[in-house]
């Protein structure tokens, strides 16, 4: 089922976003927005990767884009800076499993260094995993930052609470 798959992905992303956000002490009223944004961002990436044939790095770029734009809209409503909402929402997309494999293959390489030509396989695996982890993280940062440049002036005044008309 396509729909339940997406929902499964989005709901776990929401929980992850809230939990990782909590480590950085966000304002209490930002939690609902963080949950929604992480769900949207991760679901966008999930759909692009599974139904549109995107690779993880470019899919992450679009996921981060949607989080960036979403954080502008949500930030306007609850008067929060965009980064307060976007950074916790990005964390569930950090490519941890690739980073883990970099270390795994590094250790495997070191252990097989003197065993002839086998070790080159580990170097190859280590480097390709590193490239995926690096480009994905880089794209996450770019995708979330670009909306700042697009909205320029408006993005700077999200925390301004308009005076009530006297």
């Amino acid at each position: 089922m396509v729909f339940t798959d997406i929902l499964y992905d989005a709901s776990f992303a929401a929980v992850a976003g809230i939990g990782f956000g909590a480590i950085s002490d966000p304002p209490i009223k930002a939690f609902p927005s963080i949950a929604i944004l992480s769900a949207i961002g991760h679901a966008v990436r999930f759909c692009l990767m599974h139904y549109a044939g995107f690779d993880i790095a470019s899919a992450s770029l679009f996921g981060a884009f949607s989080i960036g734009f979403g954080s502008f809209i949500a930030g306007k409503k609850i008067h929060c800076p965009m980064t307060v909402l976007s950074i916790p929402s990005l964390l569930p997309m950090v490519p941890g499993i690739y980073a883990y494999k970099v270390i795994l293959y590094l250790i495997m390489f070191l252990r097989h260094m003197s065993v002839g030509d086998d070790n080159i396989v580990y170097v190859q695996a280590m480097f390709s995993n590193f490239l995926v982890a690096f480009t994905t993280t880089f794209n996450l940062a770019i995708g979330a930052t670009v909306p700042h440049f697009i909205f320029r002036e408006k993005a700077l005044s999200l925390t301004r609470v308009k005076k009530s008309k006297l």
């Binding site: 992905d9 992850a16 809230i18 939990g19 990782f20 909590a22």
Partner: peptide, 12 residues
């Protein structure tokens, strides 16, 4: 919260 978050991360 962070324990739940990491467990969901595992699911992802």
């Amino acid at each position: 919260l962070s324990s739940f978050a990491n467990a969901s991360f595992c699911a992802l």
